[in-house]
Design a binder for these strands. Structure first.
Lengths: 109, 109
DNA sequence: ATCTTTCTTTAGTTGACACTTACGTAAGTC
DNA sequence: GACTTACGTAAGTGTCAACTAAAGAAAGAT
């Protein structure tokens, strides 16, 4: 899940992911879209996306067809939604920990 | 906006951000929370978060109080929501571009 | 069997990033 | 003014990430 977020931090990978959003595409077609970058570079980006389970790979003869993995993206969205909304309970815990540590440095202020 | 996503890709920064989620905290308190990392490291993370406008800094005497910037986070959330849902129209454009480029390599298959 | 096409993998470079230690600075305290 | 508290900044290090060029590997086409 952490890998997914990290993968999405790269603009190029977001662009790639969007390409295979609603349709399968062979690696060449994806690479052709980016004129300023070599094909191996795209291949490596695809590997990262695949490791993060953001895309799936399907072999068809010599070609490899990529497609967005909607499941993972839904999970990631849920993770973020949880991140936005939660954290209030956990917050209190960490605040207490800091307070404790502060106390042993003698009460300041 | 891109900076915000990149900033969030780092787990430590997510933890920091969560700390100042609903309350202001001085840098020292934040740093104290992380025992395994030096204070300057946290200071640098805070700078990244500030550059990404994910937190705001307020000076109070010698102290600097940090707090999450809800506005930016709302924007980022909107950006992601747009990213999930949209991209269908844009997709067609890029597909066409790829198609054109393919055609000039002579029709394959 | 050889040659293409399609795509990955390897090797190597460059730059970015998280971190540390050491130092600087600014505001309060004595 | 000297000292402390609370922080940032500078400089240097190890690691990882993105890229390129060159070399595989694997399935068809001739």
């Amino acid at each position: 899940m952490d890998a997914a977020l990290k993968a999405l931090a790269e603009p190029r990978r977001r662009a790639i992911l969007r390409l295979v959003w609603s349709q399968e595409l062979p690696a060449t077609d994806i690479a052709d879209t980016f004129a300023d970058v070599s094909r191996p570079a795209i291949s490596q980006h695809l590997a990262v996306l695949k490791d993060a389970k953001l895309v799936t790979e399907r072999r068809d003869g010599t070609r490899r067809l990529y497609k967005a993995n909607v499941d993972t993206m839904a999970q990631l969205r849920a993770f973020l939604d949880d991140y936005w909304t939660s954290g209030l309970e956990r917050l209190r815990d960490v605040a207490e920990a800091a307070e404790t540590r502060k106390r042993q440095t003698k009460g300041r202020k």
